[in-house]
Amino acid sequence: MPVVSPYAEQLDRIPVQERALLVDGAETRFWDYGSPDAATTIVMVHGFRGDHHGLEPVVAQLSGFRIVAPDLPGFGSSAPLTTSAHSVDGYAAWLGRFMEALAPTGRIVLLGHSFGSIVSSAAVAGGLRPDDLVLINPIAAPALQGPRGVLTRLAVFYYWSSAKLPRRLGFAFLRNKGVVRIMSVAMAKTKDPSLRRWIHDQHDQYFSAFSDREVVLESFTASVSHDVSEYADRIPTRTLLIAAERDDITPVAAQFVLAERFADAQLHVIPGVGHLIHYEEPHDAAARLTTFLAAEPPADD
């Protein structure tokens, strides 16, 4: 039985439409929150193995914006990419074409969480030009060098094993509920038992919503082979980094180094939280985002 979201009442107050766009002949499903006439549109890119649901707690804390949250190709309800591998380059190119097809007006903010921070950074470094870039739990350095690099190496072995097994068995192994729960327990830092229970339920529901084994293996390889630091010095866009004090994937020290590589970046570190800012501290992330956007409105052309 699903656990009720602690953010459900806030989210229910925001109007939403489920929509779809054809990008390179494949359907991308996305959720369109708020007023389509809002002066600012925030496009949110979720992390590895998740879908748009993961960022809904942040959506729930925001008001006065149009928020567009697609499922990455091959995850959630979106079809896989048809013209490229599910690599950082493939996803970055898809994001540019999705934004072009969406054709939002007014101020455009691009927000990426975790793997979405890599995809978003690669897209902007490649020429996509939002007015502002926001990265939550940015992957600031190679994941294998993070505070819990041993766990990342175990994950590499898990995905490698899934690739070596016969297709049906490997697919089942990727969706193994016990493995998903181990991942969820390792990432959650909150001591609140009800919040932990909801986080685990979210991962149970959505962490295995992928189209096939190849999508997961390709995107996992992309997620541990690249990081935001590869792209930062080619990003001219004003950027907000929202990092976590207890992130197991990227040490805080690497976030400060990363911030210096951008042409114009602010870094905020949220204490006591890990790689699940979007679940555990969405109100803090949303407040920092709102303050960032209010501080310097875009100049008129």
Rank of each mutant, 00 (worst) to 15 (best):
S229A: 14
H268N: 02
E230K: 02
A259W: 08
T239I: 06
Q205E: 11
L154S: 04
I139W: 01
Y206L: 03
Q205I: 07
Q145H: 07
D264G: 07
A163I: 01
D201C: 03
A232M: 03
P166Q: 07
K164D: 01
A140N: 09
S184A: 15
I182G: 05
V185N: 05
I242F: 10
E245G: 04
V257G: 04
G170R: 02
Q202K: 00
V252L: 11
P271Y: 11
F262R: 05
A253R: 14
D132Y: 10
L217C: 02
N176T: 07
A263F: 12
A253K: 14
L241M: 06
T190A: 08
Q145L: 15
P251S: 07
E260R: 15
L267F: 08
A186N: 13
V224G: 04
T239S: 14
V215C: 03
T152C: 07
P236A: 10
F157E: 11
E218C: 01
D201T: 04
V228R: 09
S208T: 14
T221A: 08
V180S: 10
G149I: 03
N176V: 05
A263G: 12
M187D: 10
R153A: 10
V215N: 09
R175Y: 04
A265P: 11
Q145W: 02
S194I: 01
L128P: 06
F220Y: 12
M187I: 08
V257T: 13
Q255C: 15
V252F: 01
W198K: 00
K189V: 03
L151C: 04
I139N: 10
L128G: 07
L195G: 13
L267I: 05
R196Y: 11
I235A: 06
G126H: 03
H200I: 12
S229F: 04
S229E: 08
K189L: 08
R196W: 03
Y158K: 08
S194P: 00
